[in-house]
């Protein structure tokens, strides 16, 4: 492919004890693309997500972001004997950053079950995400020697809230917002970290058809506006088929298909995974 890779996941295996949750998973996201990850319940989608965002260190495999290796691991210690996956000796380095380091590199995420700072205001929720790139230390911040920086953070937050249509609610407690707006706030908060790649974990979960239609438009919009690449997990097939340019399908931790929406819809293995097969 001639296009520029933003994210490249190579041979990622995640094994918990004896259970292989994700097996030898490889994928890539190109610049400006919207890529979907689907699969039946328990297929390992969120685990794959968590490997990318640093919540788990994968048992084996490597993840590159903008050409830089950000995560890399191979089975070591106890896992050496227990390891059931492939490509055992392929990666030598161990790089296992915490989620905040990944976010700093420019990968932001949202969560399957909304995780807002629920008793803080909408404004503070977004403002907290601005803490990451602020030039200050605890001394200058405490004694207000960072006035300019603080002002910049507040202005950027306000601008972002306006763009997302959340400025009316800026002083409301986050948990008092209706569900759809909470989702939107979570995305706004992720955008506040200035990401290059946005990972959305079931953004349409719990939404009615109208809301998820709106969301579809919204995701396309923010991609263009903030020059993002987007990688999302979703169950709503309509949404996935509607906006994703490429789709990966996981089943029991194994990638069973990849391609554009049409190819996926007609792929017999995908149909088998979702609907079962005639005996």
């Amino acid at each position: 492919m001639s296009k520029e890779n933003v994210l490249r996941v190579s041979d990622v295996t995640m094994q918990f004890g004896g259970v292989v949750a994700v097996n030898n998973f490889s994928m890539e996201v190109n610049k400006g693309e919207i890529v979907g990850l689907i699969g039946p319940n328990g297929a390992g989608k969120t685990t794959a997500f968590n490997c990318i965002t640093g919540v788990y260190a994968p048992t084996n495999g490597q993840i590159e972001f903008n050409g830089e290796v950000i995560v890399s691991n191979h089975p070591h210690g106890k896992m050496k004997q227990m390891y059931k996956g492939e490509n055992m000796g392929k990666y030598n380095k161990i790089i296992a950053p915490t989620p905040d380091k990944i976010t700093k590199k420019g990968i932001a995420r949202t969560f399957q079950n909304i995780r807002l700072f629920s008793s803080l205001s909408v404004f503070d929720n977004v403002l907290i995400a601005k803490h990451l790139h602020a030039k200050q230390n605890v001394f200058t911040a405490t004694f207000r020697l960072n006035r300019k920086e603080e002002k910049r953070m507040r202005e950027e937050t306000m601008a972002l809230l306006k763009e997302q249509g959340l400025d009316k609610f800026k002083d409301d407690v986050a948990s008092s917002l209706p569900y759809g707006l909470q989702r939107r706030l979570e995305i706004a908060r992720a955008l506040a970290t200035n990401p290059k790649l946005l990972l959305l974990d079931e953004p349409a979960a719990g939404m009615n058809p109208q809301e998820s239609d709106e969301l579809m438009g919204f995701i396309g919009e923010i991609r263009d506006k903030y020059d993002l690449s987007i990688f999302l997990i979703e169950h709503h097939m309509q949404l996935v088929m509607g906006i994703c340019e490429r789709i990966y399908v996981l089943d029991y931790g194994i990638k069973i298909a990849e391609g554009n929406p049409e190819q996926i819809q007609n792929n017999p293995r995908v149909i088998e995974a979702y609907l079962g097969v005639d005996e």
Binding site: D100, F117, S118, S119, I128, H131
Partner: peptide, 13 residues
């Protein structure tokens, strides 16, 4: 409020 979300927002716990 939420350690996991805070970490995902780039706060070094």
């Amino acid at each position: 409020e939420d350690e996991i979300a805070a970490e995902a927002m780039g706060i070094n716990l």
